[in-house]
C-alpha cells in the first residue's frame, strides 16, 4: 500500500507511527517554549554558563554580552514554541523539523555528555556520548526525511497537487 504523494511510507502503521512521533516531539517543543515564555525570569544564561566542549567559548561570548543573551533568550523561547506548533498541527512541518533538529543539536553541542565533562546540574539519567538531545535530533531527522504533514496535518491543504493525486 502506498500513500498519496509518498513513495516511502508504505502502510498505515508506518504513517501513524511517524505522525505520533511528530506530534509528541511537537508537544515537547511547545511546552519547552511556552514555559519559558510565561516565566518572565527565564534566561538561557544558566545553561550557557555550564557549557563545556566545542561551543563553550561561544556560550561565554553570548552570556557576557547582554544583547547576545537577550537574542539567545528570544530565539529559544519563540523558536521552540513555533517548532512545537508546526509539528503538532502539521504546518510547514518539513522545514520546522529541520529547525527543531538544529535546536536540539545545538543543545547537545553546548553540553555534550563526553568523557571528562562534569556538569553543575545533575543529569536526570545516565548518558555516555549519546543523550536524549541527540536522540531527539535524530528523531527530527527522521521526521524531516519521512514527511507526514501533507497526509495528516494542515500541510494537506497547502499541497493541492499531492492531495489531488
Amino acid at each position: 500500500m502506498r500513500f498519496a504523494g509518498s513513495s516511502v511510507i508504505n502502510n498505515k502503521c508506518q504513517l501513524y507511527g511517524l505522525v505520533t512521533l511528530r506530534v509528541l516531539i511537537g508537544w515537547h517543543f511547545l511546552y519547552e517554549g511556552v514555559s519559558k515564555l510565561i516565566n518572565p525570569y527565564w534566561s538561557s544564561a544558566a545553561y550557557l554558563l555550564d557549557s563545556k566542549g566545542w561551543f563553550s567559548g561561544l556560550a561565554e561570548t553570548i552570556v557576557s554580552n547582554p544583547n547576545f543573551l537577550s537574542i539567545s533568550d528570544y530565539v529559544n523561547m519563540w523558536g521552540l514554541t513555533l517548532v512545537g506548533v508546526s509539528l503538532v498541527l502539521g504546518i510547514f512541518s518539513k522545514y520546522f523539523s529541520l529547525i527543531g533538529m538544529c535546536f536540539v543539536l545545538l543543545y547537545y553541542l553546548f553540553a555534550p555528555p563526553l568523557l571528562g565533562f562534569e556538569y553543575s546540574k545533575p543529569g536526570e539519567g545516565s548518558y555516555l556520548i549519546v543523550n536524549k538531545n541527540l536522540i531527539e535530533a535524530c528523531a527530527l531527522w527522521v521526521i524531516y526525511s519521512f514527511p507526514t504533514s501533507h497526509i495528516i496535518g494542515i500541510d494537506r491543504f497547502l499541497s493541492n497537487s499531492e492531495v489531488s493525486s
Binding site: 505522525v19 511546552y31 510565561i38 506548533v85 502539521g90 497526509i151 494542515i154 494537506r156
Partner: peptide, 24 residues
C-alpha cells in the same frame, strides 16, 4: 476525508492548551 486528515492533530493542540491552563 481531506478536512478530517488535515485537521486530525488540531485536537492535540486543544488538549495541550487545556492542560497548560490547568497547570498554570
Amino acid at each position: 476525508r481531506d478536512v478530517l486528515k488535515g485537521l486530525a492533530t488540531v485536537p492535540v493542540l486543544g488538549l495541550f492548551l487545556i492542560n497548560l491552563w490547568k497547570k498554570m
